[in-house]
Design a protein around this nucleic acid. Structure first.
Lengths: 328, 328
DNA sequence: CTGAAAGCGCTTACAG
DNA sequence: CTGAAAGCGCTTACAG
């Protein structure tokens, strides 16, 4: 492999000078510069970023920790991150916890050892060990999706989105509204979206029926099963169901269709996420667009700002938009 | 930051010894080992992988070059790659060309400068500059999706998948079959899938009608527009349409639905990709499953084999499966 | 405008 | 079983 020393020898200069033309800093005479550039091109010399990084303590790499890469939300976010980051000549080092929490911590340390310049975590939970690991890492760090204490966080407005959606159902005349949520160890999706639902029911003094409140696991199948549970007790059927993710809403729709329910006449359905699926399923699903890609872009921009100059830790709330489909 | 020197001092040994316990190689007395391990834990010392990589010429990082991250195919593949690679303690450095070809070459060089141990390219085209850049990089390298000369390649069986699908349409009594393809500078999707279609028509001596052969750009919208073009000349309507991707097939279905066509009675539709959408759209779409995630896993395994011991360049063909939906 | 020298944090023959 | 020394390929004060 050719190194900076080889180039220096070939150009009859010191490697200091070569370094200067490579990085475009410091004074170098036009003549020498040209000579070096020519040799670099001829040899196809590629500088070693490991060496550079060891020396400068900067890697030009941003670590991203995902709960699962192959979900639409994650890939939209990564796409947004990448777009911003690539423009600034950073690359993404990708890690996927596959929903294993201990890996979040493991990967933070790993990314640290790789000297990434900053980390973006698509968080799914909050715990003390996580917080302290982040603090110890002492790196530019942003949490997307959960509000982590003492960490710059960008969150979706889960409470209001869920409340707005429930409200929309009420405005369409529904008084019996079922709910498909996820476990509450996920503060954003599990707790806030549920609270938005419950508070809205209370506000209108609507019935909160235990068997109408089910817990899924984000998957289409769990939406299907949850819907089955809601319907099981057919002495009291709801007229609408709100699932906290599109996937679960789609699963619910499928069960309803199988059982001969007409959507939205026999049962209205709503989800969250604005998935491609929500748009192309029949009837189209009423949902909430969280602008995941934009959220990724914003996160990346904030992280890069933080890398370039230390900033205060801040909290941001991402906006959202209701999309009225034919399922309501 | 604590370094190996700090640990050595604290443990009253040389850094050589610390390195030995960290990497678990060479002889170290039990007593010394324990002392060092304890100090490492107490200090939370994290070794610098940049330094290690500079010295050992291995980074533990695999570069992945994608045409677009936020497509279902890409995210499935990456998920498969990651699963295999993470188990072997490699990480993924992700780059996204956003369909800009010159970036494929740029990113190969970039990944090289970052000393990745190997590269996986989800290729979309073939050109000499690309081939020569790969050769010059002289790294373990695998192309997924296109058969690149002199490069280990894993390809989907585009020709036979397209032929089988067309064949299925013929078996369902269709004699007038339209086609929505993509540009032919993509050898796999643009050429092979089209050839599978055309050859099957020829085999059965079915009419090849120019206006029935449209070219889209992978998007749902382009499927919609292509279908519109096919229908425009309503003196001669086909009875079936085969789109080379699910997205374009979905777009076609949407236009058909708008125009009052019943699927599959007035028009049968088929795609390729086994997208989530294909399963949940109504009617469900007849398609081909390419097992993208498995392809990713296989690619990763091959690359790791290649990294661990130099191997011959080889060619692999990924298997596939027809999925008969209600759209045919 | 240019170069010699130190140093980033590791690993690895080599010697004992 | 352990350590001193060299070296991976860069950058950066410092000096001239």
């Amino acid at each position: 492999m050719t190194t900076i020393n080889d180039i220096a020898k070939m150009a009859n200069v010191s490697r200091t000078t070569v370094s200067r033309v490579l990085n475009n800093n410091g004074y170098v005479s036009e003549e020498v510069r040209k000579r070096i550039v020519k040799i670099v091109e001829e040899t196809g010399y590629i500088p070693s970023l490991s060496a550079k990084s060891l020396r400068t303590k900067k890697s030009g790499v941003i670590g991203v920790i995902l709960p699962r890469i192959n979900t639409e939300t994650a890939s939209r976010v990564v796409s947004g991150i990448n777009e911003v980051v690539a423009k600034e000549n950073f690359q993404i080092l990708l890690t996927d916890t596959e929903l294993d929490r201990s890996k979040e911590i493991e990967y933070i340390k790993l990314l640290q050892s790789r000297h990434v310049d900053g980390i973006i975590l698509l968080a799914t939970n909050i715990n003390n060990k996580l917080i302290s690991t982040i603090k110890d890492a002492n790196l530019p760090f942003i949490s997307l999706g959960q509000d982590l204490p003492d960490v710059t966080s960008i969150v979706y407005d889960d409470y209001h989105a869920a409340a707005d959606l429930t409200n929309m159902l009420v405005n369409h005349g529904h008084k019996k509204i079922a709910f498909i949520g996820v476990k509450e160890d996920d503060p954003s999706v599990g707790q806030l979206r549920k609270k938005g639902y419950l508070d809205t029911l209370s506000k209108y003094e609507l019935p909160i029926v235990e068997s109408w409140i089910q817990t899924g696991d984000f998957s289409i199948e769990s939406g299907y099963e949850s819907m089955k549970n809601i319907i099981k007790d057919n002495r009291q059927l709801p007229t609408a169901v709100f699932a906290v993710t599109d996937s679960m809403a789609i699963g619910a729709m499928e069960y309803l269709r199988e059982q001969g329910f007409k959507i939205p006449n026999d049962m209205a359905v709503a989800g969250i996420g604005a998935s491609t699926l929500s748009k192309h399923v029949t009837p189209s699903l009423t949902t909430v667009d969280y602008f995941n890609k934009e959220a990724g872009e914003k996160t990346a921009r904030l992280l890069i700002d933080q890398i370039k100059k230390k900033k205060e830790k801040e909290k941001y709330i991402q906006n959202y938009r209701l999309i009225k489909g034919d399922s309501v």
